[in-house]
Design a protein around this nucleic acid. Structure first.
Length: 457
DNA sequence: GCATGATCATGC
DNA sequence: GCATGATCATGC
């Protein structure tokens, strides 16, 4: 079927809204177990009636529009979320470095995307999935500035001979995710003899989630930067600049200046502080567009006069059954640190607690950080494997004077991260795969490592 | 002084 | 009720 213009195409695409895949499939692809997951092909073939292809040109060539069929899911709290990142075209490391953004394979193929969102439901046959929304997506100017910057980051890594070290965490909206049957899907790279994992451009899960919520459930977010500002600065630079006027100032001075009440003990302290400094007082941080799309999380850090935090930094509690069920490549830990950026909001004490129990807190600055790939595939991986081994062999629990000791890797065991308890009390237990029960444990990053990252702030 | 196990406070 | 961000407290 040929479409004369995009209105015609969109009119047709919208007719799919509300339909289930078994109502669309005319060629029996749904029942073919070898045609795994290719719901997009059913749409191409049975709904739009054109031959399935994998050409470099866009799917609707005449219109320069690329078709993408992509799942969303419902979270436990009822909110809509992208089920996965949107995987775009494969990157040819050799060719891409010779191009400008405008000539890039990314832009050539994905400038206009016809997105068809369908709802994925666990344990339901694929034919029952329903198309929720057809949407013609064009990048806003502000998004485009960030994506240009992301594209340059990816290309400069290839130029630096580091195609094998690319990580999704390096960029904000546009990622370069691994794509291939397995870890042996390797390709050569132009400036290094080391082979690199095959990679494709992708729009990050967080970007797709934000987009789905906007398009499907009309949720609106607050933006902190416009296209003009983003033309000159990355999000990281922009944030440092916004926070700069307050650097080195005492917290109570800042609070007075901004007309906010800050109780450092309160859990909403960080929200209030950051949103006030960014000029969007009262907005919760997850409702800030740029943070939501780039999957930026927040952590407060309080440095002691020696430049180290007093405490290690805790993350989510560990589900030990999940740990042994997954393998490293698909583990929560790996994906989390590959896909998440952290904005550390750093404060410092200038006196020790013994010198002055009522010491003041000063704002030191912010730092946008993601765990480098070398670290993820190095110490983090070793740690993950070590824990997996202990869980499979059985955890050794020993009652001591101070509670129950275990043989999971503790602080300083690798300089990066460790396992430590985090629960209501010592009786707040969780089951282990070996049948025992242990006080709830969390994943922690060592304070020395945090201190190291924040040295330059 | 720090590792290490334990616990608090808050918000959903 | 529980996860999460944060902090306490003590023995080595």
């Amino acid at each position: 079927m040929e479409f004369q213009n995009e209105e015609e195409l969109l009119y047709k695409a919208r007719k799919a809204e509300g339909m289930k895949f078994h109502e669309i499939d005319l060629t029996g692809r749904l029942n073919n177990p070898n045609s795994k997951g290719h719901l997009g092909q059913i749409i191409e073939e049975s709904f739009f009636g054109y031959e399935v292809n994998s050409k470099a040109e866009a799917d609707f060539i005449e219109l320069g529009i690329e078709l993408k069929v992509t799942p969303v899911k419902e979270l436990k709290n009822g909110q809509l979320s992208a089920k996965e990142r949107l995987v775009l075209n494969i990157i040819d490391f050799h060719k891409e470095v010779q191009k400008s953004f405008e000539e890039s394979s990314f832009w050539k193929k994905n400038e206009s995307l016809l997105l068809m969102f369908y709802k994925w439901i666990p344990d339901v046959p694929r034919g029952e999935y329903q198309i929720l929304k057809s949407h013609l997506h064009r990048f806003s100017e502000a998004d485009l500035q960030i994506i240009r910057n992301d594209w340059s980051i990816i290309v400069s890594k290839i130029n630096a001979g580091q195609a094998h070290l690319i990580s999704e965490g390096d960029t904000a909206y546009l990622g370069a995710c691994t794509k291939g049957a397995n870890r042996n899907s390797l390709r050569t790279q132009p400036f290094n003899d080391l082979p690199a994992m095959q990679r494709a451009y992708s729009l990050k899960n967080s970007y797709m989630t934000t987009l789905a919520r906007k398009v499907i459930t009309n949720e609106h977010l607050v933006s902190i930067a416009d296209a003009i500002e983003l033309q000159e600065k990355s999000i990281g630079q922009l944030l440092s600049d916004r926070f700069k006027p307050y650097q080195g100032k005492a917290l109570n001075w800042i609070a007075r200046e901004l007309g906010i009440y800050l109780n450092t003990k309160s859990k909403s302290f960080l929200q209030i502080f950051v949103s006030a400094l960014l000029g969007v007082k009262g907005t919760s941080l997850e409702d800030i567009e740029e943070f939501s799309k780039a999957n930026i999380n927040f952590k407060t850090v309080r440095l002691e006069p020696n430049g180290l935090p007093r405490e290690h930094m805790s993350f989510r509690n560990i589900d030990f059954f999940e740990w042994v069920d997954e393998d490293w490549a698909s583990s929560w830990l790996r994906s989390h640190f590959e896909e998440t950026k952290y904005l550390f909001v750093v404060f410092e004490y200038r006196e020790t607690k013994t010198e002055n129990p009522n010491r003041k807190l000063y704002f030191k600055g912010v730092s946008l950080w993601n765990m480098p790939m070398e670290e993820i595939e190095g110490r983090l991986k070793d740690f993950w494997l070590q824990v997996e081994g202990i869980l499979k062999e059985g955890v050794v629990l020993n009652k001591t004077k101070r509670g129950v000791a275990n043989n999971l890797p503790g602080p300083r065991s690798n300089g990066l991260c460790h396992v430590r308890p985090k629960g209501r009390d010592g009786d707040d237990h969780t089951p282990l795969p070996d049948g025992q029960s242990i006080a709830k444990q969390a994943f922690w990053i060592d304070r020395t490592y945090i201190g190291e990252i924040l040295k330059e702030v």
